[in-house]
Design a protein around this nucleic acid. Structure first.
Length: 619
DNA sequence: TAAATACCTG
DNA sequence: CAGGTATTTA
């Protein structure tokens, strides 16, 4: 069987996917993990000393943590309105010992050069003062209560599960856990955030009430768990206290409260992005995929030349019959459920640019478990009937744009995504997600073309980040003009060499792209395919994987559907040409190139961000 | 003529 | 990918 081409197996994806930063260790970046621009060394310390022990990931605890943060944030915001540039928004235990215990290491908070100074205008404008201290005391008291409640809350679970109710036998970072607890608790958090204004007491009340709620659980403490609970108690107390203290310290002393990292206050995002308000008019974003989502039996018989696209069109509805798994819970509600509390202009450039890896574009992604929808299993359905591909109407390509609605709503879901890349369980996850450090940046210069030593001492070259960005841009444009490149790489000092280098990149990209296309087209032919319409590039097809591997290695970017369409068309063109024997002509590819060259899509505005390279994790 | 590409190579 | 070269294009 040839899995290269197959039924459209993936439910349509909005082009406005949400990005989700994640670590490799299986957790979504916790809010605090996302703030990396803190100038303080201690803020770089494994922030969550209270988050490490596996059991700390217990839902309850997470919720508590969230609340604590809420409180802290409230305090941060108290003095000033929720201005994006001021809250340090990072708490981290300053305890060295604890820090060392952390397995994950956070680092490189250095801001990247190109970054705008940022709206961190009012730094040091807030000085907690006595009031804050009072609040701190109050907070500590609350923590004690909290501690008690945790004990109680954990009891019911103890019998069946390990200490603290954490799934002992299971990977603490299991998906469900992340999904459930994570987003949930943070949702609450975000609520508070709305009120901001630093009305601590109010927040506290809220919290207390919540705690009470939880304490209503029955007491069934198994003797065995008791000891563990005690430990938990201690740990929790200590850790939280430390965290709170350090945060407060920061709040009180941090003169440079950079970004607030709004992200952290938002509820998890929808992995699939499906719940996101899809672009008004689908453009290339609408796709015929739904087919695969339907039960096989329900799928239209497309084995034969599926000459029209009517089917696909009919499925163009906002909600496809996708597998339940594809519809994440977290923020599935309409935008309204995810109120935005940040001024639009701020999200736009400053904040977003700095929310490393999180783009409203929604293209950044992680390997969500959800991704493994039925369609994602190449070997399953699709493979069974490789040629039963839905037709891809060339006309559909006329709308080559992927409307990128960077609605504020997108922003909310970014940071707390309960998603994580659980691949090699690497520990470098955090560093991977970090923005380029100046150090790295410097090292990149060595990568520059030796012939491109620009006279200017500025020595600004293209770094790996730029390369990655270019690759991602390839998903939208195969033939970018130099002007376009200049527009999308504002942080690059273009000169002849740089320009040609980048042009060269795209040339190389195309080369690979066309080679793959030809290769697969020929393979299809040899496999007996006769109708080019049958050739559709799907996300689970081998061809796609090859391409994705090349342009989006980390797979942290959600490949736009428009690219799949272009790829499909390209494949079909090659198929036609080859099967027609045109490949005997030395320049038989020219016509194809010409066609494809006219199908460039608009590149999301976000790509224009000079700080964009920051989002390019893993160099 | 310079820039952009394609095609080949390492 | 970067180099190099040949060819095409504006």
């Amino acid at each position: 069987m040839n899995p290269n081409f197959s039924l459209l197996s993936q439910p349509s994806r909005d082009c406005s996917y949400l990005a989700e930063p994640r670590t490799k260790d299986g957790r979504s970046l916790s809010p605090r993990e996302q703030g990396r621009d803190s100038p303080f060394p201690w803020s770089q310390v494994p922030s969550s000393s209270l988050a490490d022990p596996d059991w700390f990931w217990d839902e309850h605890i997470q919720a508590k943590r969230a609340r604590v943060e809420t409180i802290v944030r409230g305090m941060c915001l108290s003095p000033n309105p929720p201005v994006p540039g001021n809250a340090p928004a990072r708490d981290s235990p300053c305890c060295p010992e604890k820090a060392r215990e952390r397995k994950r290491k956070q680092n490189l908070p250095v801001q990247q050069g190109p970054l705008k100074p940022g709206p961190a205008g009012d730094r040091g404008s807030r000085k907690g003062g006595p009031r804050v201290r009072e609040q701190l005391h109050l907070l500590k008291q609350q923590l004690k209560h909290l501690q008690e409640h945790i004990l109680q809350a954990a009891e019911p679970k103890a019998p069946a599960q390990g200490p603290g109710g954490s799934e002992t036998g299971e990977d603490p970072l299991s998906v469900k856990q992340r999904d459930g607890s994570g987003s949930r608790s943070w949702a609450v958090h975000s609520d508070h955030r709305q009120g901001s204004s630093g009305d601590l007491s109010r927040v506290e009340k809220h919290r207390v009430s919540e705690v009470k709620h939880q304490s209503e659980e029955p007491r069934l403490l198994p003797s065995g768990a008791r000891a563990l609970l005690e430990i938990l108690k201690k740990e929790l107390t200590g850790a939280i206290s430390q965290a709170v203290d350090s945060v407060l310290q920061k709040v009180l002393l941090d003169p440079s409260g950079h970004l607030t990292h709004l992200g952290k206050s938002f509820p998890g995002l929808v992995p699939d992005g499906r719940s996101e308000p899809s672009p008004p008019e689908g453009g290339a974003c609408k796709d015929p995929l739904p087919l695969a989502a339907l039960p096989r039996s329900a799928q239209p018989q497309t084995g034969a030349p599926l000459g029209n696209l009517s089917l696909a069109k009919s499925l163009d509805s906002p909600r496809y019959p996708v597998s339940p798994r594809m519809i994440p819970k977290p923020c599935q509600g309409p935008p309204a459920n995810c109120p935005l509390t940040v001024p639009a202009h701020i999200q736009e450039d400053q904040i977003l640019s700095q929310l490393l890896g999180h783009r409203p574009s929604g293209h950044w992604r992680g390997n969500l478990p959800q991704d493994s929808s039925p369609q994602s299993h190449p070997s399953s359905e699709a493979a069974l009937q490789p040629w039963r591909a839905a037709k891809l109407q060339p006309l559909a390509l006329s709308q080559r744009q992927c409307p990128w609605l960077f609605k504020s709503t997108c922003l909310e879901r970014l940071p707390l995504v309960p998603s994580v890349k659980m691949e090699q369980g690497g520990l470098q996850a955090v560093t991977d997600a970090l923005p380029f450090s100046s150090a790295l940046y410097i090292s990149f210069t060595s990568n520059r073309s030796s012939r491109c030593h620009s006279p200017e001492r500025q020595e600004e070259g293209l770094n790996p980040g730029h390369l990655k960005k270019a690759k991602l841009m390839f998903f939208f444009t195969r033939y970018p003009s130099s002007n376009l490149l200049k527009a999308y790489f504002p942080d690059v000092q273009f000169n002849r060499c740089i320009t040609s280098q980048m042009i060269k990149w795209f040339s190389n990209f195309r080369e690979f792209y066309y080679i793959q296309m030809e290769k697969f087209a020929r393979q299809a032919i040899s496999d007996g395919v006769t109708n080019p319409k049958m050739l559709v590039v799907l996300r689970n097809s081998e061809l796609f994987r090859a391409l994705n591997m090349h342009y989006n290695k980390g797979n942290d970017f959600e490949v736009p559907d428009c690219f799949l369409e272009i790829a499909s068309l390209t494949l079909q063109e090659f198929f036609r040409a080859v099967s027609a024997g045109k490949d005997s002509d030395p320049s038989w590819k020219k016509p194809i190139y010409k066609i494809i060259s006219k199908l460039d899509s608009d590149i999301p505005e976000i790509f224009k961000s000079s700080s964009y390279p920051q989002e390019l994790f893993r160099n």
